[in-house]
Amino acid sequence: MKKNLKRYRAFLVVLVFIAVLTVVNYKLGLKALTISANSFKEMLFVIPPVFVLLGLLDIWVPRETMVKFMGEGSGIKGVILSILLGSAAAGPLYGAFPVAAVFMKKGVKFMNILIFIGAWSTTKIPMFLFEIAALGNKFAVTRLLVDIPGIIVIAFIISRFVSKKEVEEIYARVEKINK
């Protein structure tokens, strides 16, 4: 029981806060509850398909293939594939983290995981098409041409600043969770 309370304490604190807010200011509390319910509903539509795709990726794509194309020795091929996979992804950023966990389990290089997350957050194809329609070709292409090298540079810098031991601990935690 204590373990569950500790595990969900942030949720419970927010729930109590919303209850107090609703008592103090009913309209504002109701608005906060509505926003929370809408966010929860959105997650219900995004997370199940992501986990189905992750299950398929986990079963259908052998570890050796992922290591070959996105592992330590993948070079530019891994970088390009990380950008393409991140750009082709659909859904909000929180959908990228379970995918990144499966990538870690499959032996994908840490820098390529960072690039994948960066691409998921900034270079999605639907967003690019919307920008072309709404803001014009020049803006959309310029933003993309700035973002892609920026993502690679940031991923490179982060991967250099994070020690090998810390990366190994992250991979070990992911492996522990997936068992």
Rank of each mutant, 00 (worst) to 15 (best):
A10Y: 07
R63S: 02
V79F: 05
G71T: 02
M127I: 12
A10C: 09
K176Q: 15
P126G: 10
I151K: 08
P92N: 07
M111P: 09
Y94V: 06
T142E: 14
I158F: 06
P98N: 03
F69R: 03
F17N: 08
A140S: 14
I152A: 12
P126R: 04
A96S: 12
N137Q: 07
I157D: 03
N137T: 13
E131T: 04
R173K: 15
I158A: 05
G29W: 14
A155I: 00
M104R: 08
R173A: 15
L30N: 15
V16G: 07
G71N: 03
L53T: 15
I59Y: 13
G95I: 08
L114G: 09
G73K: 11
A90K: 08
A10F: 11
R160S: 10
R173V: 04
W120C: 03
V50C: 05
A172T: 08
V46T: 02
L114Q: 01
F110L: 06
K3L: 14
K124S: 08
P48V: 02
I157T: 06
S36R: 07
E64M: 02
I177C: 13
K27C: 10
T22E: 09
W60R: 07
V167M: 11
R173P: 07
M66Y: 01
V162I: 08
V13H: 08
F161Y: 01
S82W: 03
T142C: 07
I18N: 10
I113Y: 06
M70P: 00
I154A: 10
K109W: 11
M70H: 09
K3I: 03
M70A: 03
M127P: 06
Y171E: 10
F97R: 01
